[in-house]
């Protein structure tokens, strides 16, 4: 709906975050165009997860601003940003142990489909029943895309870590987001699972879902992303097409430089 052509899906302007004296982000500005798949790279502690937390409003910026679909969201709550069509996954998987895989996925679709009005739950059982059905349908569709339908009734803690991550992604997909933030979605997965996720993200991109992907697997990002942003120590040090980006001296140094020095 934000698609007045030319308005970027997401814009970060001069974002800075101070965490107890440490500058986790320092003057980061970047733009995310609609329907593209962006990669956010950088060594550990470079501020990738901090940036995602700031975009989803779980963390306040010390200064700067963030615009989603052209609207400044600095005064909005995380749930309001979510209702603007932003969904995310977490670096540490957050699944409800007491829910089944299906119910965990349904949690993602609940708010877009029904909200959680107590009054409606009390007074309009027929209405909530029909909503429940469409939430279930959305969640099942999301699980289907990740080949998880066989596991729909399992408790998530009985699953392997990689599969838990897939459930996490399914929950985000069930929201049918327009902007999807993925924080290391393939950590702990094997190669086959990674390839599967990579293909899924590409398919989502072709369906018009804007995505920001944080990953350790640089090869995967180079393979699938349209554009790469690289962070180091809270600064944005590169912004280019992936293949060009990873050849930039600054990026090479960020990834390898300190390692070489330490090894020497």
């Amino acid at each position: 709906m934000s698609a007045v052509t030319g308005v970027p899906s997401l814009e970060v302007r001069d974002a800075a975050v101070n965490l107890g004296g440490v500058k986790a982000l320092d003057g980061v500005s970047l733009t995310v165009q609609e329907g593209r798949l962006y990669g956010l790279a950088g060594p550990n502690g470079s501020g990738k997860s901090t940036l995602l937390a700031a975009i989803s409003r779980l963390l306040d910026l010390t200064s700067g601003s963030i615009l989603v679909g052209g609207a400044d969201v600095m005064r909005r709550s995380p749930f309001e940003v979510a209702r603007m069509g932003l969904a995310r996954t977490f670096q540490t998987v957050r699944l409800m142990p007491q829910f089944s895989v299906l119910e965990n996925a349904m949690l993602g679709a609940d708010q877009p489909v029904y909200g959680s009005s107590f009054v409606r739950q009390w007074l309009m059982p027929w209405w909530t029943r029909s909503r429940e059905a469409s939430v279930r349908a959305r969640a099942e569709a999301a699980l289907e895309r990740l080949h998880l339908m066989d596991l729909r009734d399992e408790p998530p803690l009985s699953l392997s870590y990689g599969v838990q991550r897939k459930v996490e992604i399914a929950r985000a997909l069930a929201a049918e987001p327009r902007l999807l933030l993925l924080d290391e979605p393939t950590a702990g997965m094997n190669r086959a699972e990674r390839d599967e996720i990579g293909e899924l993200l590409l398919r989502l991109r072709n369906e018009g879902v804007t995505q920001v992907l944080v990953e350790h697997d640089l090869k995967m990002m180079v393979d699938i992303c349209d554009h790469l942003y690289v962070l180091d120590s809270g600064h944005l040090i590169a912004s280019a097409r992936p293949a060009e980006c990873i050849r930039e001296p600054k990026v090479v140094e960020a990834y390898l430089g300190r390692g070489r020095r330490a090894a020497a």
Binding site: E103, Q111, T128, A175
Partner: peptide
């Protein structure tokens, strides 16, 4: 039951998560 029930359990488990799926936590 249903969405309300899931949201309330979610609040107890992880406030960040329920906010990120759009629940008006407060």
């Amino acid at each position: 039951r249903r969405a309300v029930g899931r949201a309330l359990v979610g609040i107890k488990a992880s406030e960040e998560l329920v906010m990120s799926v759009g629940v008006d936590l407060k």
